[in-house]
Design a protein around this nucleic acid. Structure first.
Length: 446
RNA sequence: GGCGCGGUGGCGGAAUGGCUACGCAGCGGAUUGCAAAUCCGUCUAUACCGGUUCGAUUCCGGUCCGCGCCUCCA
């Protein structure tokens, strides 16, 4: 089966055809680095990581870019409040972000462009848009002129007059039209800034993505991704900038947007305060990043996922079972079974793929080939990649546990079940479960 | 006000014009010194009202409920 993707631009599932037959270019909007990422922020990371794994399986070459926004008013604010230098803040949180996402088995993108490395390109594009009549300077600001673009709103399906009626916006005095948005804005002496034809200033939010895509890929990429909340205004404005700078060439042929992570049915967001950071969650579930990943993939990516610890526990149990089945299994040369690939090729139908994995797990009980296929397929899914799933991380305790297991075996031999159960219960209190099998006793950390 | 998404069993969550996955939990059994794990079996669902149809959970219309976006947001 060929890959099908739901395209936000057409609101339909479409057959995926990359610009070049063997190559796929993909750009996903990344974080603004001024604090910890929450679980909702992690959802697109996991979703698009899975897409990239599938694309790498099906295509010869894939280039995956995810940017880092390291210049933004929120970062400036964070610097003022903390007294830290801006670069210290952005480097610190970019590193934490990378580590937290890696714990969810989300691989590093091929390219991680930083906004501050693209200031020159942003100035060039801004000047170009002014030249082409799509932007204007006013009071030290440069604004994109939305009315100058005939088909503005194609992605979000909005019309200009409808938006203005919404009027939750205070229209700034320097805007000619309420919908116009900033390409470049002036900086005060305290604010970070770069010299430009319009004075010392800094770029607007949307511009970096347009420039990074142009610089790394050219005018048009295959897939552009991000969360649902980026459709408007961010992606709409990226399209406006890029298409007006590139004689109307599309910015991306396929636009993909993941649904929200919710908490009690409401969107998890920093402003609502109902968020849990990935960092904290990893401390709460040490060594179980894969369970968090799995939990995020239990629902189809365009559906909402309601966050709960119980969901993570459920995912963990599922993984426990798969891990037990594939212990010491090698996957050399084993192909991922087609039903699982086809489920993923159907617009990333992860629940279907998980169901197929489970049917494979059922078969794997007494079938070594199925065991290998299960592991290979799970690896494509981005799970079953840890060697220390059950005994993660605490080497200092291992010797003590094994010593108690020996003592208990001795006790059992002597029919001293009181002592044997005592050892079992003591270890259980430390979160260690003992499993008596035909070949002796093994243990798992819960 | 404008635009959009969704309501499936106790819970999570797919799919489909006819026979409704899969997982968790529950229940029964096998196994076990006990337990866990494992295996076998098993109960429960398509918000409401109309329409189209031989047949609708699926298509159409309406009602109710929940959520989102409308320049901070993944």
């Amino acid at each position: 089966m060929k890959l099908k993707l739901y395209n936000t631009l057409t609101r339909k599932k479409e057959d995926f055809k990359p610009i070049k037959p063997d190559y796929v270019s993909l750009y996903v909007c990344g974080p603004t680095v001024y604090n910890y990422a929450h679980v909702g922020n992690a959802r697109p990371v996991v979703v698009f990581d899975l897409l990239v794994r599938l694309l790498r399986h099906d295509y010869k070459k894939v280039t995956y870019a995810r940017n880092i926004t390291d210049i933004d008013d929120k970062i400036i604010e964070a610097a003022q409040q903390s007294g830290m230098a801006i670069s210290d803040i952005t480097e610190k949180y970019a590193a934490i972000y990378a580590a937290d996402m890696a714990a969810l088995n989300a691989g590093s993108p091929d390219i991680t462009p930083k906004a501050t490395d693209y200031i020159d390109q942003m100035i060039v594009m801004t000047a170009d848009l002014i030249d082409k009549g799509h932007a204007y300077e006013q009071d030290g600001h440069v604004l994109f002129s939305v009315p100058s673009m005939a088909d503005y709103g194609e992605l979000s399906g909005r019309k200009l007059n409808e938006m203005i009626a919404g009027a939750r916006v205070d229209v700034a005095s320097y805007k000619k039209d309420a919908a116009d948005f900033i390409l470049w804005k002036p900086s005060t002496d305290e604010q970070p800034g770069w010299d430009s034809p319009w004075g010392r200033g800094r770029p607007g939010w949307h511009l970096e993505c347009s420039c990074m895509i142009e610089d790394n890929f050219g005018p048009t990429i295959d897939i552009h991704g991000g969360g649902l909340d980026l459709i408007f205004p961010h992606h709409e404005n990226e399209i406006a900038q890029s298409r007006c700078a590139h004689d109307g060439a599309p910015l991306a042929n396929y636009w993909m947007h993941n649904g929200y992570l919710t908490v009690d049915g409401e969107k998890m967001s920093k402003s609502l305060g109902n968020f849990v950071t990935v960092h904290d969650l990893l401390e709460e579930f040490p060594g179980k990043g894969e369970a968090i990943r799995m939990c995020l993939l239990t629902a189809h990516y365009r559906q909402p996922v309601d966050f709960s610890r119980d969901g993570i526990r459920q995912a963990q149990k599922q993984l426990d079972r798969w891990y037990r089945l594939t212990k010491d299994v090698e996957t050399d040369g084993v192909e991922v079974p087609e039903p699982i690939l086809d489920a993923l090729r159907d617009d990333l139908n992860t629940p279907k793929a998980i169901a197929e994995l489970n049917s494979l797990a059922k078969k794997a009980v007494n079938d070594d080939t199925a065991k290998k296929q299960l592991k290979a397929a799970a690896n494509l899914f981005g799970v079953l990649e840890q060697d220390d799933w059950f005994d993660g991380g605490r080497d200092d305790e291992t010797a003590a546990i094994e010593k108690l297991i020996v003592e208990r075996a001795e006790a059992k031999k002597n029919k001293d079940f009181t002592r044997a159960d005592e050892i079992r219960n003591d270890l259980a209190e430390q979160g260690i479960a003992l499993l008596d099998g035909p070949d002796g006793t093994t243990w798992e950390r819960k």
